[in-house]
């Protein structure tokens, strides 16, 4: 079976005062549409953006992204 990259960004945003996709996008320097695509698992971000997202939520990379 083909492995897929999934993430917990939606959940993490919820636990960070329901942070909006726009606020997250501005914090990591991408567009809101890119955050939408990442959340849905339709776009795999670069390592740089992935680390920025993880650091923003004060999590390790594999707490945010998983490949299974």
């Amino acid at each position: 079976m083909k492995k897929q990259l999934s993430n917990t960004i939606r959940e993490l945003r919820f636990h960070h005062n329901e942070m909006t996709q726009q606020a997250l996008a501005e914090a990591v320097g991408v567009s809101r549409q890119t955050i939408v695509a990442i959340e849905k698992g339709k776009y795999s971000p670069s390592l740089e953006v992935a680390f920025k997202i993880a650091q923003l939520f004060d999590k390790k990379l594999d707490d945010v992204f998983s490949y299974q």
Partner: peptide
């Protein structure tokens, strides 16, 4: 506002 941002990695 969006026009000033430029392209991100997905673009």
């Amino acid at each position: 506002k969006e026009a000033d941002l430029g392209d991100d990695e997905r673009d």
